[in-house]
């Protein structure tokens, strides 16, 4: 463990990142440029989030890493191992136990507390990018608060699909000022962003950090006649029966059978431990008993 400086990055780099984080917290939603380092993992694997986590972690912290809500996917496992090795911090899969949570594409179902920090991995921090390719122009649009273009994207959605079809990376306006890309979280999670925990966003390849302080106002953009809707699959979880969690759809066979399960694995597991049973889990346990008998 002593082969690495604590949490891999050198102290000067962590100071530089912390300065960017503080600036980001002072101007909620504003993208702060920072000198992103090469990390021992490819771009797109969360190099931004890892650097923010590294600058945030202290030896007393407990880290949780999730990828699409799950603790056991490749990305989550490898980042958790990375910090176990380079920082020696405790890790956990339980949301309530963690003090720092690095996430890719989800917000945990369980409400976060004021003493927790949520770190997002961001692929493309600029919400206007797909409509305006010039960085000079998008920066000017941010500084002059010219956000009409963002609604052009939503307009196109309605014209094409009859409803706002953007279902993830849904643009939000922060504290009535900056329009921000909430990283590719499902729009189901957008209302949760007004939370007690500090939220930090790191984009490694694009070299940007932005942040939301606790209880910050976050409004999803919409039209008067097409209001924002936090949508999810209209189904209870087949494992734990939860009706309020975001679900993954899993195709079971080629006969059209499918099941819906919570994308937040910790939430689902803790509910099952508490005795909640979903439809397919119940059927499976009945079948299991029959074969045993």
């Amino acid at each position: 463990m002593s082969d690495y400086n604590f949490a891999y990055l050198d102290e000067q780099t962590k100071r530089m990142i912390r300065r960017a984080i503080l600036k980001g917290l002072a101007i909620p939603g504003y993208q702060v440029p920072f000198a992103s380092r090469e990390m021992p993992m490819p771009y797109g694997w969360g190099t931004g989030g890892v650097q923010v986590s590294a600058a945030t972690l202290t030896p007393e912290d407990t880290l949780k890493v999730i990828d699409q809500g799950a603790d056991d996917t490749t990305n989550a496992v490898s980042i958790r191992k990375f910090f176990e090795k380079t920082a020696g911090v405790d890790t956990t899969e339980e949301t309530a136990q963690a003090s720092v949570i690095q996430t890719r594409h989800r917000i945990p179902e369980e409400d976060l507390r004021e003493d927790q920090i949520l770190v997002y991995q961001v692929p493309i921090p600029e919400p206007l990018r797909f409509l305006e390719p010039s960085e000079i122009e998008t920066r000017k649009m941010h500084s002059l608060e010219e956000y009409g273009l963002m609604h052009v994207k939503l307009y196109e959605d309605i014209a094409k699909h009859g409803a706002i079809a953007t279902s993830y990376a849904y643009p939000v306006k922060v504290e009535g000022r900056y329009v921000m890309d909430p990283s590719p979280i499902p729009k189901f999670d957008n209302p949760k962003m007004e939370m007690a925990a500090i939220q930090l966003f790191g984009a490694g390849r694009e070299q940007r950090i932005y942040a939301l302080p606790p209880y910050c106002q976050v409004v999803s953009l919409d039209f008067e006649d097409f209001p924002f809707e936090a949508s999810k699959a209209d189904h209870p979880c087949d494992m734990c029966g939860a009706t309020d969690s975001y679900l993954d759809e899993i195709i079971m066979d080629d006969a059209g059978n499918r099941m819906f399960v919570c994308s937040d694995t910790d939430y689902c597991a803790s509910r099952r431990k508490a005795g909640h049973v979903g439809a397919q889990a119940a059927a499976a346990s009945v079948a299991l008993k029959e074969t045993a008998a």
Partner: peptide, 11 residues
């Protein structure tokens, strides 16, 4: 676009 740029928000 120009309408939305000056604040039109009714599709």
């Amino acid at each position: 676009e120009r309408l939305m740029a000056v604040g039109a928000r009714h599709y």
